[in-house]
Amino acid sequence: MDVLSDVLTALRTGRPHASHTQEQAPWGIRFPAGAGAGCHVLLKGSCWLLPARGEPIRLSVGDVVFVPHGAGYALADHPDSPLTEFRFDTAVPADAVTDQDAPIQLLCAAYYFDRSSSHPLLEELPDVVHLSGRQPALAAAIELLAAELSDPRAGTSAILSGLVDMLLLFVLRAWFDDERSTQGWATVLADPGLMAALHGIHGTPEHPWTVAELAGLSGMSRATFAKRFNSAVGRTPLGYLTWWRMTLAARRLHDSDAPLRAIAARTGYGTEFALAKAFKRAYGVAPGEYRRRRLTG
C-alpha cells in the first residue's frame, strides 16, 4: 500500500476542479475560505499570492503554491490591486482553447477534503506550501499540464483530471522531501520501520493488530516503536489504527450502499453494534444518520 496516496484518496471528496485563468493587469482574484484546498501553477508571467495571514508571496514562472487548510486567500498582479470574487461558473474550463498572448496564465485546481476526518499528514502542513517547481518530477508534471493546456485535444478533460491529481501528490512529495524536520511526517515517510507498520495498518485494517505485532513489522522493540510512532505520527499506534478504520467506514458510508455488517467486517469490528459504537464516539452520530446527512447534504 502507498500510504500517501491512500490517505489522499480516503480523505478527498469528489473530483478535483481545474480551470485555466488568463489575466491582464490590473487584476486580482479572491478565493473564499471553505472546505476546498487550492493549488496554483504559474505558467506565464508573474503575480502575487496574498495569504490570509502573513506577507504577500511573489510567484514566478514554474512556481507552485498549495493552500491546504481552506483559508481564504487571493492572487493578484500586485498586492494593492482590487480583488474580485472567484466563481467556478465564470472560470475558463481547463480544456478550453487558451489565449497564448495573455501576459498571465495560471492553472488553478481545487481539491475538497473531508475536514471531519483530517489526517495529521495534512494538518502539519503550513498555511501555504510554496515550491519553485525546480524539482525534476514536479517540473515534469507542470510541463505536461502546460502542454495539454496549450494544445487541447480529444481526451484532454480526462487527462487533466489525472494530471491535477498527480500534481498534488508531487507537491506533497516535494514538500516532505525538502523538509529537514526531525519529527512529523517528513520523518515518517523516510523511516522504513514506521512505514512498514503503516503499510500493515493501511493494507489490512480488519486485522486485530497489537502494538507488539506492529513493532515486529517495524523491526523495533515494542517500547521503542510506540515512542517513535507517537512522536512522529502524532497518535499512538492503536489510536491511528482506530482513526484509519473510522475513516474507511465513513468513506464507505458516503460512497457506497454497502450494509453496515460488511463495513464492520472490512474495518475490523466483529459486529454492527461494535462498529456503530466506535463510529458514534468518533463522529458524534450513528452510521445510519451519518450516511443520511452526507446523501442529503
Rank of each mutant, 00 (worst) to 15 (best):
D2C: 11
D6T: 14
L8Y: 00
T9I: 05
G14I: 05
H17S: 10
A18C: 09
H20W: 04
H20P: 02
Q22C: 12
E23L: 10
R30G: 03
P32A: 09
G34L: 05
H40Q: 08
S46P: 04
C47Y: 02
L50A: 05
R53F: 08
R53G: 04
L59F: 05
D63R: 01
V67N: 02
H69P: 04
G72P: 02
D77G: 15
P79N: 06
D80W: 10
P93T: 15
A96E: 07
D99A: 10
A102L: 06
C108H: 02
A109M: 01
R115C: 01
S116W: 07
S118L: 04
H119C: 03
P120D: 00
L122D: 00
E124S: 14
P126S: 13
V129I: 12
V129N: 02
S132C: 08
S132G: 15
A137R: 15
L138H: 05
A140D: 14
A141S: 14
A141C: 15
E143Q: 14
L144G: 05
L145D: 02
P152K: 04
G155L: 08
T156K: 03
T156D: 00
T156G: 07
A158S: 14
I159T: 13
I159A: 05
L160A: 05
S161V: 15
D165G: 11
F176M: 03
G184W: 00
A186L: 05
T187S: 07
V188G: 00
D191A: 12
P192R: 15
L194M: 03
M195S: 06
G200I: 09
A212H: 08
G216E: 04
S231Q: 15
W244G: 01
T247F: 03
L248C: 07
A249K: 11
R252Q: 12
R252W: 09
H254M: 08
R261Q: 08
A262G: 05
R266M: 10
T267F: 07
G270M: 12
T271N: 11
F273D: 04
A278M: 06
K280N: 13
Y283S: 08
A286L: 12
R291E: 02
L295K: 12
